[in-house]
Amino acid sequence: MSNRIARPAATVLCAVILSCGPVPALAGGIPALEQAGPAAAQVAADRSLHLEGASNARDIGGYVTEEGRTVRWGKVLRSNALDKLTPSDLASLSERGVESVDDFRTVVERTLSQDRIPNGARTNWFDVIGTNPANLPALVDMPTMYALMATDPGASRAFHDALVNVANTEGAVLYHCSAGKDRTGWMTAVLLTLLGVSRADVNADYMLSNQYLTGPRTGSAFIDGVEQSWLDTSFATVDRVYGNFDNYVRDGLQLSLGDIAQLRDTLLA
């Protein structure tokens, strides 16, 4: 289990940020298929896990890679926070064989909204932003957030650990942040790209948060849906800093060829 303890300054600053826009309030939005264009064919399937307490919980399986292989269903699940899961939700996740729950949130988010975990699942804390207090204002500044996720050493370490965990878990892995769209969105974009899924389908999957998030819109980017330009910022930052995605995987995420081979063996049919 990863157990990174945020410093007190991080806790105080994050509490101030969260008070500006409560994390648990989720967002409604425009159906992704209207925004994603022709590449949306592969996301037309019902990906929702149909959990009462986590509207953005969904499966990333079914995508066909550029080599003609298929991402296995039921192996990787992405979600918003799990604090409102019902007993039937927890039973459903147990039936799906969830073996690992990976939390990308800060210590304050975790304290305010404590996960409910299915029986038998282990938990990991891979804090993407909160290990460096200077990063916390990015939680309400999406362009900065998406650039930071691609370059910050703490973020890279968190995503490295999460990807290795996916590669080495026999059962299903569920990872999440608060709304399940930004930290979870970049993790999914990286994972699908590593597996060989086209950028068009990576984008379409990312935009699905605008379909699955439900609840009142507040005008705050922190809890509303996603914009394609934000994900584009992460990929552009990768190209600018590392030269290309492969270099980012090797030098930023520090994944070995063995790690990548294990991911593909675990997740591709």
Rank of each mutant, 00 (worst) to 15 (best):
M1W: 03
M1V: 14
S2G: 13
I5D: 11
A6P: 02
A10I: 06
T11H: 12
V12L: 14
V12Q: 06
C14M: 14
V16H: 11
P22V: 02
V23S: 00
L26Q: 13
G28V: 06
G29E: 04
G29P: 06
A32Y: 15
A36R: 07
A39L: 00
A39D: 15
A40E: 14
A40I: 00
A41I: 02
V43Q: 11
A44D: 03
A45N: 06
S48R: 15
L51R: 01
A57P: 01
R58A: 07
I60S: 04
I60L: 12
Y63S: 02
Y63V: 04
E66Q: 10
G74H: 09
G74Y: 08
R78E: 11
S79L: 04
A81S: 12
L82W: 00
L85R: 01
T86K: 02
T86Y: 02
T86C: 03
D89R: 10
A91E: 13
V98D: 01
V98L: 07
E99Q: 11
S100D: 07
S100H: 09
D103N: 14
T106C: 15
V108K: 09
E109S: 13
R110V: 01
R110G: 15
T111H: 15
D115K: 05
A121N: 07
T123C: 10
N124A: 09
D127I: 09
G130Q: 07
P133E: 07
N135W: 05
A138C: 11
L139H: 06
L139T: 13
L139Y: 01
V140A: 11
Y146M: 05
L148I: 08
M149P: 04
T151E: 09
P153Y: 06
G154T: 08
S156I: 12
S156T: 11
A158I: 05
F159D: 02
N165M: 09
A167S: 04
N168H: 14
N168F: 03
T169S: 09
E170I: 00
G171P: 12
A172D: 08
A172E: 00
A172C: 15
S178T: 15
A179E: 03
G180L: 05
R183E: 05
G185E: 06
T188D: 04
L194S: 05
L195H: 00
S198E: 10
A200C: 02
A200F: 04
N203P: 01
M207K: 03
Q211G: 11
Q211F: 08
Q211T: 14
Y212V: 07
T214A: 14
T214C: 03
G215I: 10
A221H: 09
A221F: 08
D224W: 03
V226I: 11
E227D: 09
E227I: 00
L231C: 05
T233E: 13
F235L: 15
V238A: 00
V238M: 14
V238W: 00
D239P: 01
R240Q: 12
F245C: 03
D246E: 14
D246K: 11
N247I: 03
N247Y: 01
Y248P: 05
V249A: 00
R250H: 08
Q254P: 03
G258H: 01
D259N: 15
A261D: 15
A269V: 14
